[in-house]
Design a protein around this nucleic acid. Structure first.
Lengths: 216, 216
DNA sequence: TAGATTGTTAATCGATTAACAATC
DNA sequence: TAGATTGTTAATCGATTAACAATC
């Protein structure tokens, strides 16, 4: 059975649909049409229907979509009904913040461990999880069936660590290191390049000012 | 003079060009052709030339591009030759981590202040910057010519705080709150929805496993 | 000058939007 | 049944890639 490839543009929109549908559900709203959702989310109704139909018909003609059903189906598409074993590699500022902030368990991510090469951090408890030395990383990943590694280490070591993680059987990397990882295509990488994002913001600020001849 | 609108797709690629050119520069490489850069960056040479030509001719026929010149021009396009006054609103895990981690000054961002509504944090020093109460936010933004606010507060208050910041004269918001802000179009917003990013990763992991019938 | 490589136009590809037949 | 709204095909739009003339 040939499954048509779904574009990343569509995938990128799914979490946003999921978020809005969750809110509608919490408000007790039971049904919604693509047009109503279009008004709320500021995307075209046509795009909404096209996006959903990539995954099969979730709606009903003449009626619309059942909010709760749609919410759950999108959750399943995003894999939120499954659990994923996750570790954080790099227990510096960002790694610690993500551990505390992300509420991984809420979406089925099981936070299994945290690693760093700074001895001062060994044993430090972050969210009930002791920081372990990098030397233990390899065995830990193999033995604990880790699916996802969050990479919050400096770019100088990120490429090598990523390659090691791949060898140890990781499936996906959530990469905060400011470097492009070089991993086989069967390993999924999601990059979060924060400084790139901030540069985009300044570009847009400046461009707007120039367009409108605003003196700084 | 009508300036053609440059697509966000192009803008999104600029920081990556900038990063690679910086590395080439550091390696002492003086010139590069679009084809060589294409090989390194894994994008088409055609796209590279098209992208650069949105901003004018940076190269020279028969020669290629001067690495240092190109690096600096892209830096200027991204506004890195200018300074931007920046504050962090929300001094929790993520806000503190960004303050410590981002090295704002390196790219012309002047970290001017940090705000929170948790009295336990008032006066706490993060990167030599004392956390101030939210009550002082409004006056501070007005008096200190703040351009950019980093929003690291919960989504429940993010929309209202963003609206207030707009009134106080902010130009751009780097939004980490998991909500869509509702601000006038002249205010630039760059969203970093971390949980959306993580969901994309799990989607891609699952999809790959399904395509290849891998048993979990 | 000949060779190399850009800048730019044209062709292709993919994603978004519009239209409407199917159907609840 | 009539009205509403999806699912899906067709049209449009925009972004990427290819081709090549300009020119260093």
């Amino acid at each position: 059975m040939e499954s048509k490839e779904i574009s990343q543009a569509v995938i990128s929109r799914l979490p946003r649909y999921f978020r809005y549908l969750g809110e509608l559900k919490d408000e007790g709203i039971e049904r919604i049409s693509s047009q109503e959702l279009s008004d709320i989310m500021k995307v075209t109704a046509s795009q909404i229907r096209q996006d959903f139909n990539n995954f099969g018909g979730f709606g009903q003609q003449g009626y619309g979509y059942k909010v709760e059903y749609l919410y759950e189906e999108i959750g399943k598409i995003l894999g939120l009904d499954q659990t994923h074993n996750l570790i954080i590699v790099g227990a510096g500022n960002l790694g610690q913040a993500l551990a505390n902030y992300m509420n991984f368990e809420r979406r089925g991510f099981l936070f299994k461990g945290m690693f760093d090469n700074n001895p001062a951090l060994y044993g430090k408890k972050i969210r009930d999880m002791e920081v372990k030395p990098m030397e233990e990383l390899q065995d830990f990943v193999k033995e604990n069936n880790i699916d996802i590694a969050v990479l919050t280490i400096p770019k100088t070591s990120a490429v090598a660590v990523a390659e090691q993680l791949v060898k140890d059987g990781i499936k996906g990397i959530w990469n905060f290191a400011h470097v492009d990882l070089n991993v086989p295509k069967e390993i999924q990488v999601e990059n979060v390049h924060l400084s790139d994002s901030l540069m985009k913001l300044t570009y847009n600020i400046i461009r707007y000012e120039e367009e409108n001849n605003i003196k700084k």
